[in-house]
Design a protein around this nucleic acid. Sequence first.
DNA 1: TTGATATTCTAGCGCAAGTTAGAATTTTCC
DNA 2: GGAAAATTCTAACTTGCGCTAGAATATCAA
Lengths: 208, 208
Amino acid sequence: MSKGDSLILVEETRPMAQSQKSVKKREAILRAAIEIINAKGFAAATMTDIAAAIHLRDAALYYYFPNKQALAFAGHQRSLERFEAILAVVEAGGGQGLCKLRRFLSALLDDAVTNGPQLYFGDSSYLDETQRQAIEEWTARLSKRLERFLEEGMADGTITACEPSLVVQLLVGMLIWLTKWTPTTPGLTNERLLEAIETTALQGLAKA
Amino acid sequence: MSKGDSLILVEETRPMAQSQKSVKKREAILRAAIEIINAKGFAAATMTDIAAAIHLRDAALYYYFPNKQALAFAGHQRSLERFEAILAVVEAGGGQGLCKLRRFLSALLDDAVTNGPQLYFGDSSYLDETQRQAIEEWTARLSKRLERFLEEGMADGTITACEPSLVVQLLVGMLIWLTKWTPTTPGLTNERLLEAIETTALQGLAKA
DNA sequence: TTGATATTCTAGCGCAAGTTAGAATTTTCC
DNA sequence: GGAAAATTCTAACTTGCGCTAGAATATCAA
Protein backbone atom coordinates (compact mmCIF):
# COMPACT_ATOMS: atom_id res chain seq x y z
CA MET A 1 0.00 0.00 0.00
CA SER A 2 2.64 2.49 0.98
CA LYS A 3 3.96 4.62 -1.83
CA GLY A 4 7.32 3.59 -3.26
CA ASP A 5 7.14 -0.09 -2.48
CA SER A 6 7.93 -1.00 -6.09
CA LEU A 7 11.43 -2.39 -6.06
CA ILE A 8 13.62 -1.36 -8.96
CA LEU A 9 11.36 -3.03 -11.48
CA VAL A 10 9.75 -1.54 -14.48
CA GLU A 11 6.52 0.24 -13.59
CA GLU A 12 6.58 3.94 -13.17
CA THR A 13 6.49 4.48 -16.93
CA ARG A 14 5.34 8.07 -16.63
CA PRO A 15 4.47 8.50 -12.98
CA MET A 16 5.59 11.93 -11.90
CA ALA A 17 4.17 14.10 -14.58
CA GLN A 18 1.31 15.46 -12.50
CA SER A 19 3.58 16.78 -9.81
CA GLN A 20 3.53 20.23 -11.32
CA LYS A 21 -0.11 21.15 -11.56
CA SER A 22 -1.37 18.62 -9.10
CA VAL A 23 0.68 19.99 -6.26
CA LYS A 24 -0.50 23.48 -7.02
CA LYS A 25 -4.13 22.40 -6.98
CA ARG A 26 -3.56 20.67 -3.69
CA GLU A 27 -2.13 23.89 -2.34
CA ALA A 28 -5.09 25.87 -3.58
CA ILE A 29 -7.51 23.43 -1.98
CA LEU A 30 -5.63 23.54 1.29
CA ARG A 31 -5.59 27.30 1.29
CA ALA A 32 -9.31 27.52 0.61
CA ALA A 33 -10.06 24.91 3.24
CA ILE A 34 -8.05 26.75 5.88
CA GLU A 35 -9.74 30.02 5.10
CA ILE A 36 -13.27 28.64 5.11
CA ILE A 37 -12.81 26.40 8.14
CA ASN A 38 -11.35 29.34 10.00
CA ALA A 39 -14.26 31.53 9.03
CA LYS A 40 -17.21 29.19 9.58
CA GLY A 41 -15.86 26.33 11.64
CA PHE A 42 -15.30 22.74 10.58
CA ALA A 43 -18.90 21.57 10.77
CA ALA A 44 -20.37 24.52 8.90
CA ALA A 45 -17.64 24.49 6.26
CA THR A 46 -19.00 22.18 3.61
CA MET A 47 -16.93 20.33 1.03
CA THR A 48 -19.01 22.06 -1.61
CA ASP A 49 -18.01 25.44 -0.16
CA ILE A 50 -14.34 24.60 -0.25
CA ALA A 51 -14.53 23.14 -3.74
CA ALA A 52 -16.52 26.08 -5.06
CA ALA A 53 -13.84 28.49 -3.84
CA ILE A 54 -11.57 27.13 -6.55
CA HIS A 55 -14.24 26.33 -9.13
CA LEU A 56 -14.50 22.62 -8.51
CA ARG A 57 -17.20 20.18 -7.44
CA ASP A 58 -17.04 18.60 -4.04
CA ALA A 59 -16.23 15.16 -5.42
CA ALA A 60 -13.04 16.46 -7.01
CA LEU A 61 -11.54 17.12 -3.61
CA TYR A 62 -11.46 13.40 -2.90
CA TYR A 63 -8.86 13.02 -5.61
CA TYR A 64 -6.46 14.98 -3.39
CA PHE A 65 -7.64 14.14 0.13
CA PRO A 66 -9.25 10.95 1.39
CA ASN A 67 -11.91 12.77 3.41
CA LYS A 68 -12.87 15.99 5.14
CA GLN A 69 -11.03 15.22 8.34
CA ALA A 70 -7.80 14.57 6.50
CA LEU A 71 -8.20 17.84 4.65
CA ALA A 72 -8.69 19.73 7.88
CA PHE A 73 -5.79 17.91 9.49
CA ALA A 74 -3.52 18.91 6.61
CA GLY A 75 -4.73 22.45 7.04
CA HIS A 76 -3.83 22.47 10.70
CA GLN A 77 -0.43 21.07 9.89
CA ARG A 78 0.16 23.64 7.22
CA SER A 79 -0.74 26.48 9.58
CA LEU A 80 1.47 25.17 12.35
CA GLU A 81 4.37 24.71 9.95
CA ARG A 82 4.05 28.32 8.96
CA PHE A 83 3.82 29.39 12.58
CA GLU A 84 6.87 27.35 13.46
CA ALA A 85 8.87 28.75 10.56
CA ILE A 86 8.21 32.30 11.73
CA LEU A 87 9.12 31.31 15.24
CA ALA A 88 12.39 29.78 14.06
CA VAL A 89 13.39 32.90 12.16
CA VAL A 90 12.76 35.06 15.19
CA GLU A 91 14.67 32.72 17.48
CA ALA A 92 17.60 32.68 15.10
CA GLY A 93 17.59 36.46 15.01
CA GLY A 94 18.67 36.72 18.60
CA GLY A 95 18.17 39.81 20.74
CA GLN A 96 16.50 40.34 24.07
CA GLY A 97 13.21 38.81 25.10
CA LEU A 98 11.02 41.80 24.39
CA CYS A 99 12.66 42.32 21.03
CA LYS A 100 12.00 38.73 20.00
CA LEU A 101 8.39 38.95 21.10
CA ARG A 102 7.90 42.14 19.15
CA ARG A 103 9.49 40.72 16.02
CA PHE A 104 7.38 37.61 16.30
CA LEU A 105 4.11 39.51 16.53
CA SER A 106 5.08 41.66 13.60
CA ALA A 107 6.07 38.70 11.46
CA LEU A 108 2.92 36.78 12.27
CA LEU A 109 0.78 39.76 11.35
CA ASP A 110 2.57 40.13 8.04
CA ASP A 111 2.10 36.47 7.34
CA ALA A 112 -1.60 36.65 8.08
CA VAL A 113 -1.97 39.48 5.58
CA THR A 114 0.03 37.69 2.93
CA ASN A 115 -1.30 34.16 3.31
CA GLY A 116 -4.65 34.77 4.90
CA PRO A 117 -5.93 33.67 8.29
CA GLN A 118 -4.67 30.34 9.58
CA LEU A 119 -5.77 27.54 11.87
CA TYR A 120 -3.55 28.38 14.82
CA PHE A 121 -4.62 27.16 18.23
CA GLY A 122 -8.26 26.91 17.27
CA ASP A 123 -10.69 24.10 17.88
CA SER A 124 -9.59 20.67 16.68
CA SER A 125 -12.13 18.49 18.43
CA TYR A 126 -13.49 17.36 15.07
CA LEU A 127 -10.31 15.47 14.18
CA ASP A 128 -9.45 11.85 14.90
CA GLU A 129 -8.22 11.28 18.39
CA THR A 130 -4.69 10.68 17.15
CA GLN A 131 -4.76 13.66 14.80
CA ARG A 132 -6.17 15.91 17.46
CA GLN A 133 -3.55 14.82 19.92
CA ALA A 134 -0.79 15.44 17.41
CA ILE A 135 -2.04 18.96 16.73
CA GLU A 136 -2.48 19.74 20.39
CA GLU A 137 0.98 18.52 21.33
CA TRP A 138 2.50 20.45 18.49
CA THR A 139 0.61 23.55 19.58
CA ALA A 140 1.77 23.06 23.15
CA ARG A 141 5.39 22.89 22.00
CA LEU A 142 5.00 26.11 20.07
CA SER A 143 3.42 27.80 23.07
CA LYS A 144 6.37 26.74 25.17
CA ARG A 145 8.75 28.39 22.74
CA LEU A 146 6.74 31.59 22.97
CA GLU A 147 6.82 31.40 26.73
CA ARG A 148 10.58 31.22 26.48
CA PHE A 149 10.61 34.68 24.96
CA LEU A 150 8.88 35.94 28.06
CA GLU A 151 11.21 34.08 30.40
CA GLU A 152 14.23 35.44 28.57
CA GLY A 153 12.78 38.91 28.79
CA MET A 154 12.17 38.56 32.49
CA ALA A 155 15.78 37.46 32.88
CA ASP A 156 17.33 40.20 30.78
CA GLY A 157 15.13 42.87 32.31
CA THR A 158 13.08 43.79 29.26
CA ILE A 159 9.82 42.18 30.38
CA THR A 160 7.76 42.58 33.53
CA ALA A 161 7.29 39.73 35.97
CA CYS A 162 4.39 37.53 34.90
CA GLU A 163 3.18 33.98 34.43
CA PRO A 164 4.41 33.19 30.91
CA SER A 165 1.92 30.42 30.21
CA LEU A 166 -1.05 32.64 31.01
CA VAL A 167 0.27 35.67 29.18
CA VAL A 168 1.01 33.64 26.06
CA GLN A 169 -2.57 32.41 26.04
CA LEU A 170 -3.83 35.98 26.29
CA LEU A 171 -1.64 37.05 23.39
CA VAL A 172 -2.77 34.06 21.38
CA GLY A 173 -6.35 35.06 22.05
CA MET A 174 -5.73 38.48 20.59
CA LEU A 175 -4.14 36.96 17.51
CA ILE A 176 -6.84 34.37 16.93
CA TRP A 177 -9.55 36.93 17.29
CA LEU A 178 -7.73 39.12 14.82
CA THR A 179 -8.14 36.53 12.09
CA LYS A 180 -11.89 36.50 12.65
CA TRP A 181 -12.83 40.14 12.58
CA THR A 182 -10.15 41.97 10.60
CA PRO A 183 -11.47 40.53 7.31
CA THR A 184 -14.66 42.51 7.92
CA THR A 185 -12.84 45.77 8.59
CA PRO A 186 -11.80 47.35 5.30
CA GLY A 187 -9.69 50.44 5.95
CA LEU A 188 -7.29 48.78 8.34
CA THR A 189 -3.55 48.74 7.76
CA ASN A 190 -1.06 46.40 9.33
CA GLU A 191 0.82 49.27 10.87
CA ARG A 192 -2.17 50.45 12.85
CA LEU A 193 -2.86 46.93 14.02
CA LEU A 194 0.70 46.34 15.09
CA GLU A 195 0.75 49.66 16.87
CA ALA A 196 -2.45 48.79 18.71
CA ILE A 197 -0.99 45.46 19.76
CA GLU A 198 2.20 47.07 20.97
CA THR A 199 0.27 49.68 22.88
CA THR A 200 -2.07 47.14 24.42
CA ALA A 201 0.28 44.31 25.17
CA LEU A 202 3.96 45.19 24.87
CA GLN A 203 3.94 48.47 26.71
CA GLY A 204 2.46 46.47 29.49
CA LEU A 205 5.08 43.80 29.33
CA ALA A 206 8.00 46.15 28.87
CA LYS A 207 9.46 47.23 32.13
CA ALA A 208 9.11 51.00 32.56
CA MET B 1 -51.69 32.60 17.45
CA SER B 2 -50.06 35.27 19.53
CA LYS B 3 -50.25 34.71 23.24
CA GLY B 4 -52.89 36.72 25.05
CA ASP B 5 -55.33 37.21 22.21
CA SER B 6 -58.19 35.76 24.24
CA LEU B 7 -60.45 38.65 25.10
CA ILE B 8 -61.86 38.65 28.61
CA LEU B 9 -63.68 35.41 28.06
CA VAL B 10 -63.49 32.30 30.06
CA GLU B 11 -60.48 30.23 29.12
CA GLU B 12 -57.37 30.52 31.20
CA THR B 13 -58.83 28.31 33.91
CA ARG B 14 -55.45 27.44 35.41
CA PRO B 15 -52.94 28.87 32.98
CA MET B 16 -49.95 30.11 34.96
CA ALA B 17 -49.13 27.11 37.07
CA GLN B 18 -46.15 26.02 35.01
CA SER B 19 -44.32 29.28 35.42
CA GLN B 20 -42.33 27.92 38.31
CA LYS B 21 -40.67 24.80 37.01
CA SER B 22 -41.04 25.59 33.37
CA VAL B 23 -39.06 28.79 33.59
CA LYS B 24 -36.31 27.00 35.44
CA LYS B 25 -36.12 24.30 32.79
CA ARG B 26 -35.95 26.95 30.14
CA GLU B 27 -33.08 28.54 31.98
CA ALA B 28 -31.27 25.23 32.24
CA ILE B 29 -31.71 24.58 28.53
CA LEU B 30 -30.47 28.04 27.67
CA ARG B 31 -27.46 27.65 29.89
CA ALA B 32 -26.56 24.29 28.40
CA ALA B 33 -27.07 25.59 24.88
CA ILE B 34 -24.79 28.57 25.48
CA GLU B 35 -22.10 26.39 26.94
CA ILE B 36 -22.18 23.78 24.19
CA ILE B 37 -22.52 26.23 21.32
CA ASN B 38 -19.62 28.18 22.74
CA ALA B 39 -17.53 25.04 22.99
CA LYS B 40 -18.25 23.34 19.67
CA GLY B 41 -19.87 25.97 17.51
CA PHE B 42 -23.46 26.19 16.35
CA ALA B 43 -23.28 23.61 13.59
CA ALA B 44 -21.47 20.99 15.64
CA ALA B 45 -23.65 21.54 18.66
CA THR B 46 -26.53 19.14 18.15
CA MET B 47 -29.92 19.40 19.76
CA THR B 48 -29.31 15.96 21.20
CA ASP B 49 -26.13 17.23 22.85
CA ILE B 50 -27.90 20.14 24.45
CA ALA B 51 -30.83 18.04 25.58
CA ALA B 52 -28.58 15.33 26.98
CA ALA B 53 -26.77 17.90 29.11
CA ILE B 54 -29.92 18.18 31.20
CA HIS B 55 -31.13 14.59 30.79
CA LEU B 56 -33.73 15.22 28.12
CA ARG B 57 -34.38 14.02 24.59
CA ASP B 58 -33.92 16.42 21.71
CA ALA B 59 -37.65 16.60 21.00
CA ALA B 60 -38.34 17.99 24.46
CA LEU B 61 -36.44 21.16 23.62
CA TYR B 62 -39.10 22.09 21.09
CA TYR B 63 -41.57 22.50 23.90
CA TYR B 64 -39.52 25.52 25.04
CA PHE B 65 -38.02 26.85 21.82
CA PRO B 66 -39.48 26.71 18.31
CA ASN B 67 -36.21 25.67 16.67
CA LYS B 68 -32.45 25.58 16.99
CA GLN B 69 -31.90 29.06 15.62
CA ALA B 70 -34.32 30.55 18.11
CA LEU B 71 -32.55 28.74 20.92
CA ALA B 72 -29.20 30.09 19.81
CA PHE B 73 -30.65 33.55 19.39
CA ALA B 74 -32.02 33.47 22.91
CA GLY B 75 -28.58 32.37 24.07
CA HIS B 76 -26.92 35.31 22.39
CA GLN B 77 -29.45 37.66 23.91
CA ARG B 78 -28.97 36.20 27.33
CA SER B 79 -25.21 36.61 27.11
CA LEU B 80 -25.45 40.17 25.89
CA GLU B 81 -27.91 41.07 28.61
CA ARG B 82 -25.46 39.81 31.17
CA PHE B 83 -22.63 41.70 29.51
CA GLU B 84 -24.67 44.87 29.44
CA ALA B 85 -25.67 44.54 33.07
CA ILE B 86 -22.05 44.33 34.13
CA LEU B 87 -21.24 47.28 31.92
CA ALA B 88 -24.02 49.32 33.47
CA VAL B 89 -22.84 48.63 37.00
CA VAL B 90 -19.33 49.72 36.13
CA GLU B 91 -20.54 52.86 34.40
CA ALA B 92 -22.68 53.76 37.38
CA GLY B 93 -19.72 53.28 39.69
CA GLY B 94 -17.91 56.27 38.26
CA GLY B 95 -14.18 56.80 38.55
CA GLN B 96 -11.49 57.42 35.97
CA GLY B 97 -11.21 55.59 32.67
CA LEU B 98 -8.58 53.09 33.71
CA CYS B 99 -10.43 52.32 36.90
CA LYS B 100 -13.63 51.59 35.02
CA LEU B 101 -11.84 49.36 32.57
CA ARG B 102 -10.21 47.42 35.38
CA ARG B 103 -13.44 46.98 37.25
CA PHE B 104 -15.16 45.83 34.10
CA LEU B 105 -12.58 43.17 33.34
CA SER B 106 -12.70 41.92 36.89
CA ALA B 107 -16.48 41.75 36.93
CA LEU B 108 -16.66 39.97 33.60
CA LEU B 109 -14.17 37.37 34.78
CA ASP B 110 -16.15 36.77 37.93
CA ASP B 111 -19.30 36.37 35.91
CA ALA B 112 -17.67 33.87 33.58
CA VAL B 113 -16.61 31.75 36.53
CA THR B 114 -20.04 31.92 38.13
CA ASN B 115 -22.27 31.50 35.11
CA GLY B 116 -19.99 29.75 32.68
CA PRO B 117 -18.68 30.90 29.31
CA GLN B 118 -21.00 33.06 27.25
CA LEU B 119 -21.70 33.90 23.63
CA TYR B 120 -20.13 37.35 23.57
CA PHE B 121 -18.98 38.69 20.23
CA GLY B 122 -18.66 35.29 18.67
CA ASP B 123 -19.88 34.07 15.32
CA SER B 124 -23.56 34.61 14.61
CA SER B 125 -23.67 33.91 10.90
CA TYR B 126 -25.94 30.96 11.49
CA LEU B 127 -28.85 33.14 12.65
CA ASP B 128 -31.61 34.67 10.56
CA GLU B 129 -30.58 37.81 8.81
CA THR B 130 -32.71 39.91 11.14
CA GLN B 131 -31.56 38.08 14.25
CA ARG B 132 -27.94 38.31 13.20
CA GLN B 133 -28.28 41.99 12.53
CA ALA B 134 -29.89 42.58 15.91
CA ILE B 135 -27.07 40.77 17.70
CA GLU B 136 -24.38 42.54 15.73
CA GLU B 137 -25.86 45.97 16.32
CA TRP B 138 -26.25 45.24 19.99
CA THR B 139 -22.66 44.04 20.13
CA ALA B 140 -21.50 47.15 18.35
CA ARG B 141 -23.26 49.35 20.89
CA LEU B 142 -21.60 47.51 23.74
CA SER B 143 -18.22 47.87 22.07
CA LYS B 144 -18.79 51.58 21.79
CA ARG B 145 -19.45 51.82 25.50
CA LEU B 146 -16.21 50.00 26.18
CA GLU B 147 -14.39 52.34 23.86
CA ARG B 148 -15.75 55.20 25.91
CA PHE B 149 -13.81 53.92 28.91
CA LEU B 150 -10.66 54.25 26.87
CA GLU B 151 -11.57 57.72 25.62
CA GLU B 152 -12.34 58.87 29.15
CA GLY B 153 -9.04 57.46 30.31
CA MET B 154 -7.17 59.23 27.54
CA ALA B 155 -8.89 62.46 28.59
CA ASP B 156 -8.28 62.11 32.33
CA GLY B 157 -4.69 60.97 31.82
CA THR B 158 -5.00 57.41 33.08
CA ILE B 159 -4.74 55.69 29.70
CA THR B 160 -2.14 55.87 26.95
CA ALA B 161 -2.97 57.31 23.55
CA CYS B 162 -4.45 54.60 21.31
CA GLU B 163 -7.18 53.76 18.82
CA PRO B 164 -10.03 52.73 21.12
CA SER B 165 -11.88 50.64 18.57
CA LEU B 166 -8.85 48.51 17.81
CA VAL B 167 -7.79 48.13 21.42
CA VAL B 168 -11.27 47.08 22.45
CA GLN B 169 -11.23 44.37 19.83
CA LEU B 170 -7.91 43.11 21.13
CA LEU B 171 -9.24 42.99 24.66
CA VAL B 172 -12.36 41.23 23.48
CA GLY B 173 -10.16 38.69 21.74
CA MET B 174 -8.40 37.89 24.99
CA LEU B 175 -11.71 37.49 26.78
CA ILE B 176 -13.30 35.31 24.13
CA TRP B 177 -10.29 33.09 23.99
CA LEU B 178 -10.40 32.80 27.75
CA THR B 179 -13.79 31.14 27.61
CA LYS B 180 -12.43 28.50 25.25
CA TRP B 181 -9.31 27.30 26.97
CA THR B 182 -9.72 28.04 30.68
CA PRO B 183 -12.24 25.19 31.08
CA THR B 184 -9.42 22.80 30.20
CA THR B 185 -6.99 24.27 32.72
CA PRO B 186 -7.80 22.94 36.18
CA GLY B 187 -5.59 24.65 38.78
CA LEU B 188 -6.33 28.18 37.66
CA THR B 189 -7.73 30.80 39.97
CA ASN B 190 -9.47 33.97 38.97
CA GLU B 191 -6.91 36.07 40.79
CA ARG B 192 -4.06 34.74 38.70
CA LEU B 193 -6.03 35.30 35.53
CA LEU B 194 -6.95 38.83 36.43
CA GLU B 195 -3.38 39.55 37.39
CA ALA B 196 -2.16 38.21 34.05
CA ILE B 197 -4.66 40.38 32.21
CA GLU B 198 -3.67 43.45 34.17
CA THR B 199 -0.02 42.77 33.55
CA THR B 200 -0.53 42.13 29.87
CA ALA B 201 -3.06 44.77 28.99
CA LEU B 202 -3.57 47.41 31.65
CA GLN B 203 0.02 48.11 32.52
CA GLY B 204 0.35 48.86 28.85
CA LEU B 205 -2.63 51.12 28.76
CA ALA B 206 -1.85 52.89 32.00
CA LYS B 207 0.34 55.89 31.49
CA ALA B 208 3.72 55.43 33.18
C1' DT C 1 -59.05 9.13 42.89
C1' DT C 2 -59.74 11.51 38.82
C1' DG C 3 -59.71 14.31 35.19
C1' DA C 4 -57.21 18.11 33.03
C1' DT C 5 -53.01 20.13 31.92
C1' DA C 6 -48.12 20.14 31.42
C1' DT C 7 -44.16 17.78 30.09
C1' DT C 8 -41.46 14.25 27.89
C1' DC C 9 -40.93 10.35 24.98
C1' DT C 10 -40.94 7.20 20.76
C1' DA C 11 -40.98 6.90 15.96
C1' DG C 12 -40.27 8.53 11.86
C1' DC C 13 -39.98 12.14 7.89
C1' DG C 14 -37.09 15.05 5.00
C1' DC C 15 -33.12 17.17 3.80
C1' DA C 16 -28.42 18.43 3.66
C1' DA C 17 -23.81 16.97 3.41
C1' DG C 18 -19.95 13.43 3.24
C1' DT C 19 -18.74 9.94 0.37
C1' DT C 20 -18.38 6.56 -3.58
C1' DA C 21 -18.65 4.62 -8.38
C1' DG C 22 -18.18 5.11 -12.73
C1' DA C 23 -18.60 7.94 -16.82
C1' DA C 24 -16.80 11.98 -19.21
C1' DT C 25 -13.27 15.09 -20.05
C1' DT C 26 -8.73 16.92 -20.17
C1' DT C 27 -3.81 16.39 -20.30
C1' DT C 28 0.44 14.23 -21.65
C1' DC C 29 3.59 11.88 -24.32
C1' DC C 30 4.68 8.83 -28.44
C1' DG D 1 -3.68 11.87 -34.13
C1' DG D 2 -4.23 8.61 -30.59
C1' DA D 3 -3.73 5.92 -26.45
C1' DA D 4 -2.93 6.04 -21.68
C1' DA D 5 -2.96 8.53 -17.59
C1' DA D 6 -4.74 12.25 -14.87
C1' DT D 7 -8.41 15.07 -13.51
C1' DT D 8 -13.16 16.38 -12.94
C1' DC D 9 -17.99 15.54 -13.30
C1' DT D 10 -22.71 13.40 -12.68
C1' DA D 11 -25.59 10.60 -10.07
C1' DA D 12 -26.67 8.14 -6.38
C1' DC D 13 -26.07 6.06 -1.69
C1' DT D 14 -25.73 6.81 3.40
C1' DT D 15 -25.86 8.96 7.57
C1' DG D 16 -26.88 12.29 10.91
C1' DC D 17 -29.61 15.78 12.47
C1' DG D 18 -33.42 19.21 12.68
C1' DC D 19 -37.94 18.79 13.29
C1' DT D 20 -43.00 16.94 13.72
C1' DA D 21 -46.89 14.03 15.25
C1' DG D 22 -48.95 11.64 18.36
C1' DA D 23 -48.65 8.52 22.26
C1' DA D 24 -47.21 8.12 27.05
C1' DT D 25 -46.16 9.88 31.46
C1' DA D 26 -45.93 13.24 35.17
C1' DT D 27 -48.03 17.01 37.80
C1' DC D 28 -51.65 19.04 40.15
C1' DA D 29 -56.19 20.93 41.68
C1' DA D 30 -60.57 19.40 43.46
